[in-house]
């Protein structure tokens, strides 16, 4: 569980490299997210485009990351694959998070704005 990250101005994009965020890696994920959040600029984008599967523990870890970031930083999501999207939709967590189709949508906006 070692997500890559890239800072673009006020934005840190964190890309999860695992294909699953499940009970086996959820705690590790949450800890790593805390480290990456504590040093981050005000805006965080979690890129989940490589994550094919997320279970309830994984969902809990993403929510924990959102809470760790607040109130000083804002965590948004990008690149939900179909099964991951189903889990967010079923639990109505899609109403809590701002979700972008892909990370490029956000970086594209930044490029256009500058």
């Amino acid at each position: 569980m070692d997500p890559s990250f890239e800072d673009i101005g006020d934005l840190r994009i964190i890309k999860v490299q695992e294909d699953r965020i499940d009970a086996a890696v959820a705690i590790q994920f949450k800890d790593r997210m805390r480290e990456l959040t504590d040093t981050a600029p005000p805006n965080l984008l979690l890129d989940l485009s490589r994550v094919a599967f997320l279970d309830s523990s994984g969902l809990g870890a993403v929510v924990a990351a959102f809470k760790q970031a607040a109130p000083d930083r804002r965590l948004e999501l990008a690149g939900l694959t179909p099964t991951v999207e189903k889990v967010f939709k079923l639990t109505r967590m899609d109403s809590v998070f701002t979700i972008h189709a892909c990370a490029g949508d956000v970086t594209g906006l930044l490029a256009n704005a500058s």
């Binding site: 279970d55 309830s56 523990s57 969902l59 809990g60 870890a61 929510v63 924990a64 959102f66 809470k67 607040a70 109130p71 889990v87 079923l90 639990t91 109505r92 967590m93 109403s95 809590v96």
Partner: peptide, 25 residues
């Protein structure tokens, strides 16, 4: 049971989704 998500960020649930998903599907 479904969680109440109409709460402040710090009160969002981090668990208890498992049986909700099982029952729902």
């Amino acid at each position: 049971l479904a969680h109440d998500l109409d709460v402040s960020a710090q009160d969002l649930p981090e668990g208890g989704f498992g049986w909700f998903l099982i029952r729902e599907l």
